[in-house]
Design a protein around this nucleic acid. Structure first.
Length: 536
RNA sequence: GCCCCCGUAGCUCAAUCGGAUAGAGCACUAGUCUUCGGAACUAGGUUUGUGAGGGUUCAAGUCCUUCCGGGGGCACCA
């Protein structure tokens, strides 16, 4: 809808330029957005204010010219077009336009909302990637719902999307894990899972014990938790595997060939400061071992150049915890140095603070204090957990109180949304017995003219815009908000308009609306990885 | 000391490249309805609710700047 209005405005501007009333100028990007208030219509544009500088006229005058040019569209798409101080143009959609949209949704069914923004380009979203040194906590699994949902949205927007988890299964932290499992003097990690691993692992060597423990943690703990969260990864990438298959060596060789590496004090440095980083970064330590960055560089080169099956990604989105934000410049620099500038986006996810009785606690696997995601999932369930995390934007410092979360879980808005879906299903179930498969013609839909009906349709049609915006700005919290608004619009419609009644024509039209609402609501829940129950 | 993020209603959080009267949920209060599923709907913001001051703009929670407060980062750790 926004796009249609944008095109109309652009056409109008060009027409007026042709007539000579406007001088020639490059039309700036035209902003059309949804109005917040009903008196401001359904959509609004600030174009008149934007171009007043070029036109040397005041915005109200420009708006008037534009609106008279757009006059011909009134009746078809618009009910009316108004101008408001200091130069806003407000568009009111016609009922006819809204009714036609219902027909569109019903013909597209669950394909409604699909876009071609991505044009089939391949995107990989990497998220969680927590070290295999213990169970996933509520903090490091925060990226799960976010990454999973973002990937789903991108898929809907026309990208070919994959989900990846990078396992740091070698290096210092694995060695420390080994010591911890052996419970020797270098032990650091604590917790009941360490005790259990201590009984199971017979290795005496810390490194071997650590690798074995890491494997068990990934296979038996992390993969299980992730599955309970409803996430299916396409790729579990092992750091050790990358090194063994000499991807690390190859990527360093390439950087060296491009003269981005140098030796200093026995260590090998990458010249990341040439790409805007504040300093250069070590990739090989003086003892010959590779840094975390070296592995990460190798993995990213792999993503862009080497994955099997024609899966070269043209865009990679990494979701990092705030404690890793200092590493982003180094990684981005390396990606650029390897010839993939602009292909890596990083979302920084702020920390989760755990509260207990109002007191802030710092989670630490080394101290043995943490709230696991499994614990939360057992208490509250995946749907409520996902909704809870998805509601918050990535840069919110999230306060999390487990006892409060348990207490409030019954009040989680996810149930409100799911309830509406179940209610829709119930109506459709009931109608089927009386009214098998109503065929919808556009004429039948003319009866949908109650304000609550129009309100619901307006909610439904912005689904496309929700997908578009989220695919562009990654602000996934838009989805739960939309789901709630849509459910509320449906509940209002339900209150005001009885669907199944004596009036066969009206019943038919309203059932069409209800069916449309079901497609969109279910689709929204699917994107968030939340179930859409037919009954509750 | 330098860099990143945040500070919005009693609480948890929103706010569409800067847009018009800053919104939801929870909590609280008062109502609706003999219900196609009440896990619903309607109304109510409570000294002046955007941490404080200054600036840019027709327009600032959003951009610039100073300060205050919180979190994170500044390794040949991951």
């Amino acid at each position: 809808m926004r796009k249609i209005i944008r095109n109309l405005i652009e056409k109008a501007v060009k027409e007026i330029q042709k007539s000579g009333e406007f001088p020639k100028f490059e039309t700036p990007s035209i902003l059309v957005e949804r109005s917040e208030l009903k008196v401001h219509g359904d959509y609004t544009s600030n174009i008149a204010m934007k171009i007043s500088g070029f036109c040397k006229k005041n915005p109200m005058e420009i708006a008037n010219l534009l609106v008279s040019e757009l006059d011909s569209e009134i009746g078809a798409i618009f009910e009316k077009i108004e101008i408001a101080e200091p130069g806003f143009i407000n568009f009111f959609l016609s009922e006819k336009c809204l009714q036609a949209k219902i027909k569109e949704i019903l013909s597209q069914k669950d394909k409604f909302g699909r876009l071609n923004l991505g044009r089939g380009k391949k995107v990989q979203v990497e998220f969680i990637s927590a070290n295999p040194t213990g169970p996933l906590t509520v903090a490091n699994a925060r990226g799960g719902p976010l990454g999973d949902t973002l990937a789903n949205v991108l898929e809907m927007a026309g990208f070919k999307t994959e989900k990846a988890y990078y396992i740091n299964d070698e290096g210092n932290q694995v060695l420390i894990l080994g010591h911890s499992v052996l419970k020797d003097e270098n032990a650091q990690y604590k917790g009941s899972y360490i005790d259990e691993l201590n009984k199971r692992i017979k290795e005496k060597d810390a490194e071997k014990a650590g690798k074995k423990a890491a494997k068990i943690i990934i296979e038996e703990m992390i993969k299980k938790t992730v599955k309970n969260l409803g996430i299916n990864y396409d790729e579990w990438m092992s750091e050790e595997w990358l090194r063994k298959k000499s991807f690390v060596e190859k990527s360093l060789n390439l950087l060296n060939k491009k003269r981005f590496l140098y030796q200093k004090e026995g260590a090998l440095y990458f010249k990341s400061s040439q790409f805007g980083d504040e300093r250069d970064r070590v990739v090989v330590k003086s003892d010959g071992s590779k840094t975390y960055l070296a592995g990460d560089i190798a993995y990213h080169k792999y993503k862009f150049d080497s994955p099997p099956g024609g899966r070269k990604f043209s865009k990679v989105i990494d979701i990092f915890g705030a404690d890793h934000h200092g590493d982003v410049p180094g990684l981005k620099a390396a990606v650029e140095a390897l010839g993939h500038k602009g292909k890596l986006d990083v979302i920084i996810l702020q920390f989760v603070t755990v509260l207990e009785k109002g007191e802030k606690l710092r989670m630490s696997k080394r101290k043995g204090f943490f709230v696991t995601m499994d614990e939360l999932l057992n208490e509250v369930g995946s749907d409520a957990v996902r909704f809870f995390f998805l509601e918050k934007s990535a840069d919110t410092h999230l306060n999390f109180d487990l006892s409060l979360a348990k207490e409030h879980s019954e009040k989680n808005p996810v149930y409100y949304v799911q309830y509406s879906h179940a209610r829709i299903c119930s109506i459709l179930r009931k109608s089927k017995t009386q009214n098998p498969k109503p065929k919808i013609k556009i004429q039948n839909l003319k009866l949908l003219n109650h304000p609550s009906e129009s309100g619901l349709i307006k909610r439904l049609i912005i689904f496309t815009e929700v997908i578009e915006d989220t695919a562009k700005d990654y602000q996934v919290q838009r989805l739960p908000g939309y789901a709630r608004d849509l459910a509320a619009a449906f509940n209002q419609f339900y209150r005001d308009c009885r669907v199944i009644s004596e009036d066969k024509e009206l019943t038919r039209a309203r059932l069409a609306l209800v069916a449309s609402a079901k497609f969109v609501l279910k689709n929204t829940l699917n994107l968030m990885g939340i179930s859409a129950p037919e009954r509750m």
